[in-house]
Design a protein around this nucleic acid. Structure first.
Lengths: 334, 334
DNA sequence: GTGAAAGCGCTAACAT
DNA sequence: ATGTTAGCGCTTTCAC
């Protein structure tokens, strides 16, 4: 900046004024400064400015998702980016991998870089470590999973209702023998989905005591193995509810392998790519990651704009998409 | 930091030493400083340090991909993150959307934030605007698409060879009536794939003059429409090569709709999620986005570590995955 | 309409 | 083993 000022024959403050579009600079001076900046390939240093700037904003956001390599996270990320772009804010994205250590490391990395706000998917038992930062006024929005130990804005899917809706869908087709496949039972979201499933069966008068509830399946292969194992036992279920993306895919692979995909009903929570092109198409309770990301980003910016209303909880509705697998009726036993 | 120093009863420089793990601090002092930092919830300001730090590194990378909401980009991003994480480097990710204005805006946003390196997928006609930055020594690695107007490290798939391999695969099954569906013809990568396809047909003695080459299909719907249109004309092809992810999916939808998916061969460039679960499974020339991302990130860090060898071009091999659709033999005409 | 001086939080260089 | 001073590139404040 000093070089630009020297080349343009003005003071540094004048350069600063031109760069930031502040008033009280004559057009002639402006032109000189711009020309000098161009010829020196000058790019202002945003961080240096921040150090002294009154609002202290880095125009930067930290986003922590399950994994950036994952359709749900990608959609959330994209929605956040779209909102941030309009504000001239850049987004740091990191992957959680359901690892509490990574959660803390990522948050710390964001904070050291003085992000203006945080959008977080969490996995550790408590987010109370964020309390000082919240007190300092940094906006934090939790997405997909609710926080514990602190209160802050949260955006989640209606996990329980969505799971209940899926279950009702299967009950209405006459199923009475169910199985549940879910991911890590420590994850709140997973608990909610299981609860929605079991409660709905309970209300329908189905004895939930004997229903196989297989949990802690965190990848396709584990889900596939678990499903195959279940189907080699007597009286396999006629209907399956799978509580997550990868689990659903693992179950599909298992049913194919067993030749059971046309006579076993399946509804998955969370949409699966190309689910409509499979045979049968996969019926799912689809989340709305775009909406989750958009709302989360808008909450952050509202807070930055001074909104100091109490922390809120936004619930983004899920939607049942019937494609075939959920409409299979119970087979008659041999 | 001043507050921490005051609370610990030491000078700021000692705090700096402790925070950065520099030597020559007594254990007792270290403990005092750490305690003070903890009690004040102190997080060092990385940017402020950078301003003065001799290496001037922000420990930050800028990554520009097609769209963060896209499986290929997600895999690249994840690989870059994994390499960067080991170095304590955070990643800014942005979406290009094949929009030249976005490309420039994203690069400028990265530069203003003083990223240590750039990993870019580009779409504008020339990247000569990066020349000053390259001269300044900022490492830039181009991924997926080669740059124009500047020379710098590049990591790409073997587009031409991959396309040729796909074509050979179809030729070997006896096909002689082909069609090509591709995305924007202005994209170098797309040109290479088309070229690989046509050259291979030429070498096999197939007249390429009459082959339908449908291009500029940038989404599923456009590809689907184009394929349906082609199949309503006389003498439809018996084999299709589609040059991109979304185009492949559009073509699959079209073939389904036409009831042609079991008698028309299809090989797509770039893998498709769940392609193995479709019927028939989709044969593809799979890229290796993880490898592309990993190599790109390693190139950046090698440059930062002082590697000043001439700009290199890494070619990541594609792999043909036969799943059914590419093994369909030509139907006999009625 | 413009510039000079001070200072943001930190680290380099040189004390001590 | 620790402290002091200067200065990174910018914006603030205030003077002209």
């Amino acid at each position: 900046m000093r070089h630009v000022a020297a080349l343009a024959g003005v003071g540094v403050k004048t350069v600063s004024r031109v760069i930031n579009g502040e008033p009280n600079v004559s057009p002639a001076t402006t032109a000189k400064v711009l020309a000098a900046a161009r010829s020196l390939d000058y790019e202002p240093d945003l961080h240096a400015g921040n150090l002294r700037r009154s609002d202290g904003r880095s125009r930067t956001l930290g986003l922590l998702v399950g994994s950036v390599d994952n359709p749900f996270a990608g959609a959330v990320h994209r929605a956040v980016e779209d909102v941030a772009l309009g504000r001239g804010v850049a987004v740091f994205a990191s992957s959680l991998d359901d690892d509490p250590a990574r959660e803390q490391a990522a948050v710390s990395a964001f904070l050291r870089r003085r992000v203006d706000g945080l959008i977080l998917t969490t996995v550790s038992e408590s987010q109370s470590y964020l309390a000082p930062e919240l007190r300092r006024g940094t906006p934090v929005v939790f997405v997909d999973r609710e926080p514990a130990g602190v209160t802050s804005d949260t955006v989640v899917s209606d996990n329980r209702d969505g799971a209940a809706m899926a279950t009702r869908h299967l009950l209405e087709r006459g199923h009475r023998r169910f199985a549940y496949f879910g991911d890590r039972s420590t994850i709140r979201t997973a608990q909610e989905r299981r609860r929605g499933f079991l409660d709905e069966l309970g209300s329908a008068g189905v004895a939930t005591r004997d229903i196989p509830v297989v949990e802690d399946l965190h990848d396709e292969a584990a889900a596939q193995r678990a499903a195959i194992e279940l189907f080699t036992r007597p009286d396999p279920p006629t209907a399956i509810f799978s509580s997550q993306n990868l689990v659903t895919i693992g179950v599909i692979r298992a049913l194919r392998e067993l030749g059971r995909h046309r006579d076993t009903a399946l509804v998955g929570f969370d949409d699966v790519p190309l689910a409509d092109l499979l045979e049968p198409g996969i019926t799912v309770v689809a989340q709305n990651p775009q909406e989750i990301g958009r709302i989360a980003a808008e909450r952050v910016f509202a807070r930055l704009d001074g909104d100091d209303s109490p922390a809120g909880r936004s619930v983004v509705r899920t939607r049942l998409i019937a494609r075939g697998s959920g409409e299979i009726t119970p087979r008659h036993e041999g």
